[in-house]
Simulated scan of single mutants.
Amino acid sequence: MRDLMGMMKQAKELQERMQQMQAELETIEVDGAAGGGLVSVRVTAKGECKAVRIDPSLMKPEEAEIVEDLIVAALADARSKAERVMQDKMKSLTGGLALPPGLNLF
């Protein structure tokens, strides 16, 4: 019974830390880029797009498709960086707690 109480206490602590981390992830921003920096985006660690920047040299009607592809690539770059940030935060959060492998808490 004592182990069950300890596990419940750990679960409650983990839940509280996860809530704090969720709030923190909304404030962390990462940048993604494509086309050698001609297109860049800024997203939160939770994947919300905050800004898009397009170099003026790309603002030609005949290059619209290229710009669109670069935006998609920049967003993919930023999202992968955001995912790494979330994984790092999760590792620090669950440091002493044994969780099943592959358990995705987000």
Rank of each mutant, 00 (worst) to 15 (best):
E63A: 15
G32H: 11
P101N: 02
A98R: 13
V72R: 10
G35C: 03
E29P: 10
Q22F: 03
V67Q: 03
K91W: 00
A82D: 00
I54A: 05
M86V: 12
V30N: 06
M21I: 05
K91I: 07
A76E: 13
L38E: 06
N104I: 11
K89Q: 12
E29T: 15
L103K: 11
S80M: 13
A34C: 11
L97M: 14
C49M: 15
M21W: 01
L93I: 03
K50V: 08
E68N: 08
L58C: 01
A73S: 13
C49W: 09
I54V: 14
L25A: 10
V39R: 10
V67M: 13
I71W: 00
L97A: 08
Q19N: 14
L93D: 02
V41K: 12
E63K: 15
L70F: 01
G36C: 02
M18G: 08
L99V: 08
K60M: 12
Q19T: 08
A64Y: 12
G95T: 09
D77N: 03
P61A: 07
D88M: 11
D69E: 11
L25C: 09
L97G: 09
L75F: 09
A51L: 07
V30L: 06
R53E: 13
E65K: 14
L58S: 01
V30W: 02
A51S: 13
L99M: 12
E65V: 13
R42F: 01
M21N: 04
L103D: 00
L97Y: 04
E48A: 13
T44Q: 06
R84Y: 05
